[in-house]
Design a protein around this nucleic acid. Structure first.
Length: 862
RNA sequence: GGGUGCUUAGCUCAGUGGUAGAGCGCCUCGUUUACACCGAGGAUGUCGGGGGUUCGAAACCCUCAGCGCCCA
């Protein structure tokens, strides 16, 4: 093992990429399914093939990599399985846009050619995010990379579809679905984003005279498809009209007035128009009253089949035209404008979604959702943090049937075939439909195949070695924002396909990354942060540490570039500390000297290391990444750099530090291991240089050592720190430059004697020269006293201010303590250790006050 | 409308009953045998308002106010 001197700075740009390739080439990230080691599995939430690494993904990956790297170091057979999602609509849109540049539509190519074209696009231009993951340091197993449309996963899709169909859990029906007139496909509820938009609430009078009734709507054009007017059964205002019919304006069709308990008599006039083919609530009313369903919009959202002048108009043009026509008839009773109401938009293209009656395939979710809810209720699956459980239950307990058919070409084609005489058959893998049967043209919702991800990627439905070894997965890490899109669906299908074995033991949810003021990032606001740019400037480690440091379970975090710079600075600090340690001979060879034989500074840093290891391990296991990072940061920067190295410099300089070299080597070795999951690159570079080992990726995770717990030693060093801080404060208040050396004499209790030279070194206080030493100032800190010979006169005013401030603080502390101790209730009820603590505090303030008062009186008057 | 959070230093946030914390920012000093991407020192808070429980409340309960998210 040969140690070389490190350069003065860590060059992330040069070092990171080669390190990553070294890891991959060495096969560190590829677990062996035959290994006897216990498995630990995470499946990567598959990014869209069209995707890039944005800041939210970076957080998600940071957390997963921390867990995987830690478990790998702990001796688990750790698998982090990567892959991508075919992302039906998103990908189809990308390729359609390309075609548009050639003035072609997908219909010009035809289905087969178009799909070929998408595959070609995937082969050529997808996978940017996979390269970005390498730069980020993700320790995924690339040999197991999967794609939701590769052959194995497609077999899984066919298998589960058939099983669900045979179990009666997939059916085809006419229902109101969300229709995107631009994408020309159905959408599931969660693919629709609701926003409060400005619209217009129009009140229209149907009928005339005593038999007229006023209804209100924001989608006036749908009145062309009305088949009833509904009122509440108990509403006396309309009791005389129920059962009668009324003439629908413009269309001149007679429609019934019905009573239905669903109508809210307090909203508007208490009467509503019923358009069963264009509104989910109206559809339900229609079913209860056997109303006709009149579809009055084409798939392009153009008015059609109403036999009115409005046929051929786009829905928004028709809205205006119908209002004008009604106005001409004097039927507009009121117009409220602007009227803010929730409007659904297509998640992919933002087009206003149209609720439309349509024949689609659905998953019957009730029994599946019950099982998914129970798995969490029974504790088979834990949600971290538990505070997000109510959201999960709220969703699974009220889940609507899931519309799974999409009128797209890119995706898993629905394995249903229709025979010449209306037969319907479903084909599993390796099954063919009889001749003359025609396959359903639609494809499945993208989330249908992603719902299988935790087991389809491991080889299911085959009983592969991987499946046996790595299922169920250990923990699923994702943002709470896709709990419903994805996590719930994996629960539904996983429990069904795997006979009640849930797809993961733990669901660990994190929040969203926001800008430095806590606002949502968006391109339009210009506050979006690009992790790739930041990696270029500060390195992947800095981005990772910043994200981990902000990751409190389940809650959002704010992010600013200067905080990433701070993390980079932390890396540099660690780099220089290790560099300095190596220059001073820090080593890991030989046994660690017996703890009792070490000096208190060495014992102290080992004791601090020990509690840091213990707590960081607990916190990481509890998904408390922010708190774990905080502890690491303070141990490394404050304890190690600012105190241990400073207090040890004198010994290193005089080469009296044989044991300390071994201790320092040990501390750095352990610290670098502890930090490696969070900052993999810099720790690898430092650790291999320090130890000569092959790679910290494979190093064992630090174990706490109970024999290194040293409360007494920690207390002693704490006092040393207090003394040093007090003297520094004095020097600072007196305007004495840090570099100026001062003669001084120490009067210290026995236990400090051993550290006098270290303290003198740090404080720049020289031993007094006999005969010349003329003390002009005395400082007392507890039982510790220093006499200083100040060549210049003491700044009396500054010194009085300093002492007065301390005196005031001591008096205030004394008051607080006395109030407590003279309180009978406190004395009777407070626990003994608290009482003792307060008494000690009182004693300390008493002596401080005495000392400070004397010192103040001893000052010459100004 | 239903559910669920949040309100602590200038900013972003930790802190689940025992003397209020961190990072960044701010002020002063500084070419110390690692590091200026640094060091030393310092300033800054009636912990949203009010009430209650308790010997003791930033923390537990009630209430009011403001902000947010999810679902309808």
């Amino acid at each position: 093992m040969s140690q070389r001197e490190l350069p003065p700075n860590f060059s992330s740009a040069e070092v990171e990429a080669p390190l990553y390739e070294k890891w991959v080439a060495a096969g560190y990230f590829t677990p062996d399914a035959k290994s006897e080691k216990p498995p630990f599995t995470i499946v990567l939430p598959p990014p869209n093939v069209t995707g890039v690494l944005h800041i939210g993904t970076a957080l998600d990956h940071t957390i997963q990599d921390i867990l995987i790297r830690m478990k790998r170091m702990k001796g688990f057979n750790a698998l982090w399985l990567p892959g991508t999602d075919h992302a039906g609509i998103a990908t189809q849109n990308v390729v359609e846009k390309q075609l548009a540049l050639e003035r072609l539509s997908r219909h010009d190519l035809g289905r087969e050619e178009f799909v070929k074209r998408v595959w070609q696009w995937k082969a050529e231009s997808s996978g940017a995010i996979l390269q970005q993951m390498r730069r980020f340091g993700d320790s995924v197993d690339w040999t197991r990379e999967r794609f939701t449309m590769d052959e194995g996963l497609s077999r899984a899709v066919l298998t589960i579809f058939k099983r669900l169909y045979d179990a009666g859990l997939i059916y085809r029906a006419e229902r109101i679905i969300n229709w995107c007139p631009r994408c020309m496909t159905a959408l599931s509820d969660i693919e629709v984003d609701h926003s409060d938009d400005e619209g217009e609430l129009v009140s229209i009078r149907y009928g005339d005279g005593d038999d007229s009734i006023v209804v209100a709507t924001t989608r006036v054009e749908t009145m062309l498809g009305d088949t009833a007017v509904a009122v509440h059964p108990d509403d006396q205002r309309y009791a005389h009209l129920v059962g009668k019919s009324i003439l629908l304006p413009l269309v001149n069709r007679l429609i019934p007035i019905i009573a239905d308990g669903h109508v809210d008599p307090k909203f508007g006039t208490g009467a509503v128009k019923v358009t069963p083919a264009h509104d989910p609530n109206d559809f339900e009313i229609g079913l209860r009253h056997c109303l006709a369903n009149i579809v009055m919009l084409s798939p392009e959202a153009v008015v059609t089949g109403t036999n009115t002048e409005f046929d051929g108009l786009d829905r928004f043009e028709a809205r205006k035209a119908v209002v004008e026509a009604l106005r001409a008839q004097g039927r507009i009773v009121a117009e409220k404008r602007p009227y803010i109401h929730a409007v659904g938009h297509c998640q992919r293209c933002d087009t206003t979604v149209e609720p439309l009656l349509s024949k689609q395939w659905f998953v019957k979710v009730a029994p599946l959702a019950k099982a998914a809810g129970d798995a969490v209720r029974e504790g088979k699956v834990k949600i971290e943090p538990a505070s997000l459980e109510p959201r999960y239950f709220e969703w699974v307990d009220n889940m609507h049937d899931w519309c799974i058919s999409r009128q797209l070409w890119w995706g898993h084609r629905i394995p249903v075939w229709y025979g010449p005489n209306g037969e319907v058959i479903v084909t599993g893998p390796d099954e063919d439909a009889p001749a003359g049967y025609i396959q359903d043209p639609d494809v499945l919702d993208t989330w249908f195949s992603s719902a299988l991800w935790p087991f389809s990627t491991l080889g299911w439905p085959e009983q592969t070695e991987d499946l046996k070894k790595f299922y169920p997965t250990s923990v699923l890490v994702t943002g709470y924002d896709i709990l419903f899109f994805w996590v719930v669906r994996m629960m539904l299908f996983g429990l069904f396909a795997m006979e009640g074995v849930p797809p993961f033991h733990i669901i660990a949810l994190h929040g969203l990354v926001r800008d430095k003021f806590g606002k949502k990032m968006s391109r339009s606001k210009g506050n979006a942060i690009d992790p790739l740019e930041l990696m270029d400037i500060y390195g992947a480690d800095a981005v990772r540490f910043t994200l981990a440091r902000g990751a409190n379970p389940g809650s959002d975090q704010a992010l600013a570039e200067e905080w990433i710079a701070g993390s980079r600075n932390f890396g540099t600090k660690l780099w220089n500390a290790t560099r300095f340690a190596m220059m001073n001979g820090a080593t890991i060879s030989g046994d660690l000297p017996a703890f009792e034989t070490l000096n208190a500074v060495d014992r102290w840093i080992l004791s601090r290391l020990n509690s840091t290891i213990t707590q960081v391990d607990e916190l990481l296991e509890a998904y408390e990444f922010a708190r774990a990072c905080e502890l690491i940061y303070h141990f490394a920067w404050d304890d190690l750099c600012d105190w241990y190295l400073e207090l040890s410099k004198e010994a290193f300089a005089t080469d009296t530090a044989h044991d300390s070299k071994r201790v320092l080597g040990h501390v750095l070795d352990q610290l670098l291991r502890l930090m490696h999951p969070i900052m993999p690159f810099i720790t690898e570079e430092l650790w291999t240089n320090l130890t000569g080992g092959e790679s910290v990726v494979l190093a064992e995770w630090p174990e706490p050592n109970a024999t290194h717990d040293d409360a007494a030693g920690e207390k002693l060093i704490l006092q040393v720190q207090e003394i040093i801080t007090e003297v520094r404060r004095f020097r600072n208040d007196q305007g004495i430059k840090p570099s100026q050396r001062i003669p001084g004499r120490f009067y210290a209790p026995e236990e400090f004697a051993r550290y006098e030279s270290a303290m003198r070194f740090v404080l720049r206080i020289d031993y007094p020269e006999e005969g010349i030493f003329a003390p002009s100032q005395t400082l007392e800190i507890g039982k510790f006293k220093i006499e200083l010979d100040l060549s210049q006169s003491v700044d009396i005013v500054a010194e009085r201010a300093r002492l007065s401030k301390d005196l005031a603080a001591a008096k205030k502390d004394r008051e607080t303590a006395i109030v407590k101790l003279s309180n009978d209730g406190f004395m009777a009820k407070a626990p003994a250790n608290v009482v003792v603590e307060i008494k000690e505090r009182l004693a300390k303030t008493d002596s401080d006050i005495e000392r400070l008062t004397a010192a103040l009186e001893g000052l010459p008057s100004a």
